[in-house]
Structure formats: C-alpha cells, structure tokens
Design a binder for these strands. Structure first.
Length: 260
DNA sequence: ATGCCTTGTCGCACAAGA
C-alpha cells in the first residue's frame, strides 16, 4: 500500500500536473495540501475518473486539504480538534480498510508562522500543541496511524541547503523544531530519515531566485508513522523530478509503502 | 532587500506563501 503527501499549491492551477503524477506514481492514498479551493469547486470528477474516492476540507482562496484513496475513505474527520474558533482548513483524517486491517491517515497543512513578531507565529505553535494532543489520542488506539503533510518545519540544519538563511524564519525557529521533536518523541517514526541520512534531501524549492536550479531546497514535508504503522513500513521516496515539470508546485510528493 | 515567483481574488494591485 503506497501512501503519499503533496502540497500542490492550488488545485485549479495544478490539475493537469496532479493527474499526470497520479497516473505515474499510482499511489493508493494521497494527501493533498493547499488546494486553495472550496469543496464545491474541487475537480473531484477528474480524480474519480482515475479510480479514486475523494474527500475535501477546503476554504476560499487559501489553505485547504484533500484525501484521495482507491479504497473507500471512512469515518472522515475535518479540522484539527482543540480550538472551535479556528476557521483555517488545515486537517482531514480518515480510515482506510485493507485485507490486513485498517489504517488511519491524517493529512495536515501546518501553519507557516511567518513573519515572526506577528500573531501568525503563536498560531503555528498553538496548532502544533493541538496536533501533539491529537496524536497522543490516536497513539492510544489500536489502529496503525500516519500523519502526512506539509509541516512547515525544517527539523535539522542538514534539512536546508543554506541553514543560515533560515535563522529568522518561523520554519527553523527553536520553538518550531522543539515541538516537532516533542511530536516525534511521542513514539512516531519519521519515514524519510529512517530511510536515508543523505545530505541535500529536500521537498521544497522556492520559485524565486533560481532556487530549484541551484538546488537551494529545504525538507519540510514529512511522514510520521505510529509504532503499529512502522511495523508495516517497507520503504519511502521523494518524487523530486516532479519539481522539473511544466507549471510545477514548489513542493514535491513524498511517499511511504506499507505491507499490504 | 519591504527584492527575487506563483496563486487567487467579485483583480486591473495586493495578500500570502516559505
């Protein structure tokens, strides 16, 4: 079973690219972020035509997440618990049943948090606290659980080509990295770093200043697996070549493979 | 560098991203 995550930066502008990638990569489940669409405008028929079920949690203009799966998506949960006043569409979760049991999959778009010194950074940290609380809840349950998405956190200096350029950025603040470690230390395995220690392993390259051509990237899209999910983990990858396609997103897909 | 691109918006410049 192949489960992927990708921040597509706008489903309207990226539909042809998304369809091309789905046909090439053939994931069983895909978590999409930054759909930038309300649910009613999401191009569900085009994706259903490739054999997928589609569930969205969108909003106007910004943010928005979607879960697509060849198998049915059950027990859909929209929004991250812990703050009823939060109107930003950044989380959707569902259960997928397989021949060997169910997996619970959370698709997340963690707040960017920039610029520092505004209300955006405490919103990011508060959202991470809510994610930690929710993850504890899921770890206490029997179903294998994965959280995939755009975490907007550079975990380590080696996860940036030029870490010194990020010292005043919300993605690389000590508080952001600390909370990411707290989340991991609940008992999750981070898929990509469990596969490779290779330097220059990135998932995002800015559109500006030739970042892609210079390989000036960062690694901010992550897949966290609960112990029961990790037991079934058999491999992972980053579809870096997609960044070189026409009209690319600034992020590329990241995926894991689980037994059955 | 408050810059550089890209997307979406009841557009004709601006907000937001990272």
């Amino acid at each position: 079973m192949k489960i992927a995550t990708w921040n597509i930066n706008g489903v309207k502008a990226r539909l042809e690219t998304v369809l091309a990638w789905l046909q090439e990569a053939d994931p069983d489940v895909a978590c999409l972020q930054e759909i930038k669409s309300i649910d009613e405008n999401f191009p569900r028929e085009e994706i259903e035509a490739l054999g997928y079920n589609v569930e969205t949690h969108g909003q106007k203009s910004f943010n928005g997440v979607a879960l697509i799966s060849k198998r049915p998506l059950e027990d859909i949960q929209r929004g991250l618990p812990g703050d009823d006043s939060d109107e930003q569409a950044r989380y959707i979760e569902a259960t997928i049943s397989t021949e060997t049991g169910a997996v619970r999959v959370g698709c997340l778009y963690l707040p960017n948090g920039n610029p520092l010194g505004t209300e955006k950074f405490p919103y990011k940290l508060g959202w991470m606290d809510r994610l930690i609380a929710h993850a504890k809840c899921r770890l206490a349950q029997e179903t294998p659980f994965l959280m995939l998405g755009d975490y907007n956190v550079i975990p380590d200096p080696k996860d940036a080509r030029n870490p010194e350029n990020w010292t005043n950025d919300a993605l690389f603040q000590p508080e952001s990295r600390q909370k990411f470690r707290t989340l991991l230390n609940l008992g999750f395995t981070e898929a990509v770093r469990s596969c490779t220690d290779a330097a220059e392993t990135y998932t995002f390259w800015d559109y500006q200043a030739g970042a892609w051509q210079k390989n000036n990237g960062i690694r901010i899209d992550h897949i966290l697996m609960s112990p029961l999910a990790t037991d079934r983990f058999s491999g992972c990858g980053i579809d870096k070549h997609v960044r070189g396609w026409e009209k690319p997103s600034d992020h590329v897909p990241v995926w894991v493979r689980l037994a059955a």
